[in-house]
Each structure stands twice: as C-alpha cells, then as structure tokens.
Amino acid sequence: MSSTKARAALRTSARASAELLLILLMLAVSLWVLGRMWSVVWPLVIGLLLTTLTWPPTRFLLRRGWKPALAASTVTVLFLLVAAGVVALIAVPVASQSGDLTDGVVDGVQKVREWAAGPPLNIGDAQIDKAFDTAVSRAQDGLGSMVGAVVTGVSTVVNGLVTAVLALFLMFFFLKDGPRFLPWLARQLPGRLSTDVPTVAARGWDTLGSFVRSQAAVGLIDAVLIGLGLWILGVPLVLPLAVLTFVSAFVPILGAFFAGFVAVLIALVSNGLMDALIVLAIIVVVQQLEGNVFQPMIQSRGLGLHAAVILLAVTLGGSLAGIVGSLLAVPAAALIAVIWNYVREQLQEPSQDPGTDEPETGIATPS
C-alpha cells in the first residue's frame, strides 16, 4: 500500500473513531439527562404502556363516529373501573397473603438445603450456608419487590399516587390527541427529518403495542392454566402465584423461570416432593405450549429479536434498574432494533433489476 493510501486510510479510521466517540458521548449525556428527569419520564412510560392496551377500544369508537374527547373519556373511565375491580378482587388478597408467600419460599429453600446436605451430594455446611443464605436473601428481596410492584402498580417513584394520576392523565391525552401527533411532528421538523422521525415513531408504536398486548394475553393464559393446576393439586396461595405468573410474563425468559421456581418451592413445602414434581411438569408443559402455540398465534409478528438478545437485555436492565429495568428492557431493545432497521434500510444501495445492469428509476412502465 502506498503512503498516500495509508494516510487516507488512517484519516478515515480516525474520523470514524471520532464519530463513534461522539455518539457514545451523546448517549451517555442522554442517559444522564434521562436519569435526572426520571420522575417525569416514568409516568410518561407508564402512560404509553397503558395507552397501548386501551387504544384498540378507543380506535373502535372513533371509527364508529365518536368524538375523540368522548371516546377517550369513555375508555379511561372503563379502564379505571376495571382497575378498581382488579384491585378489589385480586390485589388485596395478594397483599394479605404476601407474607405467607415469602415464608413459603424461604421454607422451600431451607428444605432444599437439608436435602443437599445429605447423600448423595453431601455438600459441606459452610458451602450450603454461604450459597443458601444468599439465595434466601435474594428470594425475600425479589419476592417482596415483585409483590409490592403488583400492589402499587409497579411504581418506583416515592409518591406512587402522583405517578398513577399523571399516567392516567397522560393516557387520556394520548388517546384523545394521539392521531394528531405524527402530522404535527412532521410539520415541526425540517427537511428529511419530517419523514424519517414520524416513520420511526409509527413503527416503534406498532412494535410497543404488539409487545404489550401479546405479553398480557400470554401472561393471562399462563396464569389461568398454572393456577388451575395448582388449585387441582391443592397447593396453597394459588391466587398470589397466579398473579406472580402474570406479572412475570412481562419479563421474558427470566420471568417464567422465577415464577415457576416459586411455585415449585411452595408445592414442595406444603404438599411434598411428588406434588412439587407434578407442578414442575405442569409449568414445563404450559411454557412449551406458550412458546410453540400461544405466542405464534397471539403475536403474528414478533419483535425480531433473538432469544440471546432478549436474555442479555433483561439481565442488563435488571442490573441497572432492578424490577423496572427488567420490565422495560425488552421493549427498549425492540425500539432500538426498529431504529437500527430503519437506518439500515436508508443506507442500503438501490436494488438492481436482475435483467439489467441499470439501477431502478422507480418510474412505472406501461404493461
């Protein structure tokens, strides 16, 4: 390689490195600003997630000629009634039994500890103490956080009531004025951004809505089937375990493992080893039906993410922001994939006609 080409390659590499560093710096600043504004961003995120669930009935009313304000008000009131019914019928009993659920998990861990200390494993007491004390602590903390998230509406803001009220108001305005947002956004942006940003926003909204609605439907099916199996076997705390299964469905892969682990431990403590194995078999069968039947039927278009990417996203989100990070990790990864796919489409070369070397002009020819 000549010295001129070498200098040109070095300049190109230096420019690319500088641009990458600038992008990383902008990302770090954006995350810092997001963290500082989290008390406002969190109600906005909850409002968007609630809007994805309530938008289909609102759209149905709008297509029937209802005014946007009336349709949004009706759906918001119905949502509040349904939420109040859920709190009265499910959340209150779950909260009253949360202590028993936590104690059952701890007892189950202790029972496994005693089994591991005997033959054929014969694991030393010191190793068991260190490993299982950590497991007990994490089980108590994680289960308490999960039950608290169910009861309080998955709120990490100090004043959960203010967050809920803000989210409901935002949901109402999103339902009322949502269809006007993209045209308004297109008018505010200059040049090509007036096309690119609304297109990415529309695709991201479709992806987010698909994820939330499909996970809610699949989680409900899992909770009903697993709860029915626990009820038939006479396992206690059926309702809290069913609610835990439903909430855990929003954390792919790790959520199902956690909920199943808790159900098996409760069955082991209360009903014995045989029923615990039956519960394990029920959970495995339901999870197989979910992955091979329910999920493809309910979610016709997937998120386009590999299982390994989902696992890494959930792990990273949990390590950064706990339960909230685990819940939001997969939607965030899906939105990033939407942006990346759109950028890749725009950077692709124009397609070539297989029968000619000329690039396509986009002008239709008469048939």
Results as ranks from 00 to 15, higher is better:
2 S>L: 01
2 S>G: 15
2 S>P: 13
11 R>V: 03
13 S>V: 06
13 S>R: 11
17 S>R: 11
18 A>N: 01
25 L>H: 05
25 L>S: 13
26 M>E: 00
37 M>C: 12
44 L>Q: 01
45 V>T: 10
55 W>I: 07
61 L>T: 07
68 P>V: 03
68 P>G: 04
99 G>D: 12
108 G>H: 09
118 G>T: 03
126 A>P: 00
132 F>G: 08
134 T>D: 13
135 A>F: 04
136 V>M: 09
137 S>N: 13
146 M>Y: 10
149 A>S: 15
153 G>L: 06
158 V>N: 13
165 V>F: 14
168 L>H: 04
185 L>F: 10
187 R>S: 14
192 R>Y: 07
196 D>N: 05
201 A>W: 05
201 A>D: 03
212 V>M: 13
213 R>T: 14
223 A>Y: 10
226 I>W: 07
228 L>H: 01
228 L>K: 00
233 L>C: 10
244 L>E: 09
249 A>Y: 02
268 L>I: 07
270 S>K: 02
270 S>D: 15
273 L>G: 01
283 I>F: 06
292 N>L: 11
294 F>T: 08
295 Q>F: 11
298 I>W: 02
301 R>V: 15
304 G>V: 05
306 H>T: 11
329 A>E: 04
332 A>R: 00
345 E>A: 15
352 Q>A: 14
354 P>F: 06
365 T>F: 14
367 S>Y: 14
